[in-house]
Structure formats: structure tokens, C-alpha cells
Nucleic acid binder design. Structure first.
Lengths: 240, 240
DNA sequence: CCCTTTAATAGTCCACCTGACACTAAATGG
DNA sequence: CCATTTAGTGTCAGGTGGACTATTAAAGGG
């Protein structure tokens, strides 16, 4: 790092890309925009945008998240850096280094198109290659990396509650795990493990109960303060 | 992302910073350089440098790693992206976005000073605040983040073998866990768990044995192909 | 050369975690 | 009223993991 000279090197553009997930009807969905311009016009892509000269990448990501989702309380959403993608040819026009973030949204208000996107929608993301694939740029890879990261973090952190509203039932929490992992979980064993993990959830004291559909009404819980889970909640083996 | 214009935005300098760890005499060490110039002249810092216009951050990181460590077989070393640090004021001179990497080195040849550093040394990194603290820029935080990441990945990946030479004893492997976690592990139980984890290590078939110091000679093992550990090898509880 | 020290390896015991599964409770829809 | 659905409780067998003891095989010192 001998003497810096801001013009000694080709300038890099720095952007953020957002892999935003939510659970809808028990299935995992990702927020995707439709590109309105070349390259990849008409193709689906991750929402994102440029980092401004005076803001950190995290700030830019949260700003873009607010713009694209139309959510009001963006401050409370879970936003986490995933990794940075810097291959020289990832954007055909110029050198773009992109810091990717993962965001988790509890309920899912309809998305709205941002300034630079033709449209924005919540589209199902799962095992099968979706009809809208492939995404623009290297966004398929980013989204897959984000999915893998979220799946892994469910095991050993209390992250799952970030997909849930402030008060939720254990059934809803279990659906989060099932949607992300793509696996069935035994309701009884899930309840036992969640309640045995200190700080994961705490019961809402009032006899508060929620009726959603059929079946016996369930007790409500709030997210506990726990960030690390000991022991972890491991996903079932073998995913070939 | 409406039409790019590479001069529409203030240019960002993109650098890589390296948190390089090794095990020496059973203790965790980090590779640190001494800065020769302002700002922070004379202070310790992480090795690193600029990303060139035609290379990915990973490529730049591996190039810097080779330059700073003097290792010949840099290609085989474990190098992994940590995260990107982009706070606008993290470098007092200009806007620098830095992609941080974690590298793990098995044996530790003496470091050598790179082009931009007065010197480079392996310095112990552990519980106590070391005498060389604080580091330049936000490098204390980067190094702490890297340590936490490595400690966590030892639990559920076969990463520990990256600290070991191609053939190693279970005692050496256990020392890796102990040095990174700063905790004592029962040798017998460690052996049982490691050998019970499929794909973590594989025995060297010949009656190969290694003599290092006192005690019964140990059997040699090679790193197995396993990348994910099921079940994980959890570190002991409670770190207040 | 013997004896102590050190580390690897083997084995045991027991508490607890976990998956599988049965059973009851409370709501809805025909 | 009855079948269905989901919540919640309980049980049981097998496996895992921590604590601990014992044995083996080398090095080093007197």
C-alpha cells in the first residue's frame, strides 16, 4: 500500500446485490426484479444498486431494500452480508465489484418496482429449477449461495425468527425450517427441541392464542434473545 | 442500475486484507506486517494490497499471500473470503473498500517483508490483548472476525486439517482445535469423535508412525474429503 | 539398564439427546 | 355428529458424548 493515488488505478464501481427471502404459504420465495435495460433486458435479477460515495455497503443495502420492498420498518429487518463477487468479467460493461447481502422478511407485502427495474415480484425458490431461470449476471450463483448460507445458519442461530412476525406459533416457526431446508420435521420433536433451547423463543404470557385455520389453536411465542444455539438444531441427514 | 457511467461516481479503491493464521508450538499465531508509512506508521497491520484492474479479489489475495509469506505452494493453501469492510471513514485518506480473506497455513516458514511493509512476523494471537495492539485501521476487528469465523467453521467442517501438513497425527489435529478454541479437549474422546465422523480423516495405510518428542508414537492420518461434518464437533460450552 | 514421564490408544459407565410413534385436546367442515 | 386437522403431551429404545480408568509404547535421566 505505498502512497495512495486515487487515479493510479482503474476505478471500480461498487454495488450491492440483495438476496431477499420470505415464506409464503409455507414455501420459500425470493424477491426478484425484471431488468428493463441491456444487458439481460427482460431477465430476472436480484435487486440492488450502486453504493454512494458517502455510505457503507450495509447502508446502501438497507436503502435499496426499502426502495424495492416498500416495507416501512426496514430498520428491524434482518440484513446480513453474504460475500463479495469480484470476477473481472461478471458485468460485460465495466468492472463492477458487488457486495451481496441476504435479507429475511417476515410477512410479504407486494413488492413494487424500483427505479431501475421494470417490475419486482416474490417468486418461489426451491428444489426445482424455476421457470424464470437463469437470472442475469451471476445472480443464480449469488442466490444459491444465499440459500445455502441461510439454511446453515438456521441450524446454529436463532435466525428463523427473522422470517416470522413479532408473535408467532411454533407451527409457523417449523414451517420456516421446512421451507428453507425442503424437509419435513416432526412437530412433536421440533417443539421439544425449540423449547429446550434456552433463549430461542419465549412464551407470550397471556393466554394469547391465534386462530389461523383448522385445528387446535396454538400458543404464541416471541423471539428470544439467543443468537447462538447450543446445541444446534441440525437438519436431517442425507440430501443427495 | 440505469446506464452505467464509470465516471458518474466517485471511484472506489478496492483492496484485499489477509487474516493469516497458523499454529506454532500449540498456539495460534497471525501474520502481521509493520507499516512503514503514514498513516499508522510503525503500527502492526494485516498484509494486503490493491486489487488489480484485471483480477478477482481472490486472485489478488492469493498473490499477496505468496508475496508476504514466501510460501512456494500457495495454490494448495486454504483461502476463504471473510467479508467486506466498506465504512466510508475506515481509511483517512480516501474511500477504500476492502475485501477481507482468511488463510490457514500448516507449517510456518519465517515471513518476509513485502514491498510495502517494513517487516512481517508471525505473532501470537489469543485471549489476552497482545502487546502489539491496536492494529492499524479497522484491522483489529477484521482479525477478531476472522478468528471467530475459523473457530465456528472448525465445528462443522473439516477445516482443521488445513492447519496441518499432508500427514499428521490426531494429537496434532487436536492441538489445532485447542489453539483456535482456547480450550482443552480430552484426547480419548476427541479421537473417538474424529474417527467416528465419516470422511474427516483417513488412516495412512502403511504402519507409518511419526516421532516428534516423547510418548508413544502416533499413527498418521491424511485429510479426508469431507467438507461438512455430520454430526458437528462442538466446542465446549460457556465462553463468558 | 531401570524407572519415571509422556502421550497414544482402548474401554467403561452413565446421563442426556433424538427419532419414532402413540395418544389426547381443540378447532373446522361436511 | 363425525371425520379431519393441527396442537400439545408422553413414552421408549438407541445413540452420542463427557468423565474416567487402564494399558501400551516410546524418550530421558540417573
Amino acid at each position: 500500500m505505498q502512497g495512495y493515488d486515487k487515479y493510479a488505478y482503474e476505478p471500480f464501481a461498487v454495488t450491492v446485490d440483495l438476496a431477499v427471502f420470505t415464506i409464503r404459504e409455507g414455501r420459500l420465495h425470493a424477491l426478484l426484479v425484471e431488468r428493463g435495460e441491456q444487458p439481460y433486458a427482460g431477465r430476472r435479477a436480484l435487486p440492488g444498486g450502486f453504493v454512494q460515495p458517502d455510505e457503507a455497503a450495509e447502508t446502501a443495502a438497507r436503502r435499496e431494500l426499502a426502495e424495492e420492498t416498500g416495507l416501512s420498518d426496514v430498520a428491524g429487518l434482518h440484513l446480513e452480508q453474504l460475500r463479495t463477487y469480484s470476477e473481472p468479467d461478471r458485468d460485460p460493461r465495466m468492472r463492477v465489484v458487488s457486495v451481496a447481502f441476504t435479507a429475511l422478511v417476515p410477512d410479504a407485502p407486494e413488492a413494487r418496482a424500483g427505479s431501475d427495474a421494470a417490475r419486482a415480484d416474490w417468486l418461489p425458490y426451491g428444489e426445482h429449477r424455476p421457470s424464470y431461470a437463469p437470472l442475469a449476471f451471476d445472480h443464480d450463483r449469488i442466490l444459491a449461495d444465499a440459500h445455502e448460507r441461510v439454511g446453515a445458519k438456521l441450524e446454529y442461530t436463532g435466525l428463523a425468527t427473522a422470517f416470522c412476525p413479532p408473535e408467532f406459533t411454533l407451527g409457523e416457526l417449523r414451517q420456516v425450517y421446512q421451507a428453507v431446508w425442503g424437509a419435513e420435521l416432526d412437530p412433536a420433536n421440533f417443539r421439544r427441541k425449540v423449547l429446550a433451547t434456552p433463549g430461542l423463543v419465549e412464551a407470550v404470557p397471556g393466554a394469547a392464542r391465534l386462530t389461523g385455520g383448522r385445528g387446535k389453536p396454538a400458543a404464541l411465542y416471541r423471539a428470544g434473545g439467543a443468537t447462538a444455539l447450543h446445541p444446534p438444531l441440525l437438519r436431517p441427514e442425507g440430501r443427495p
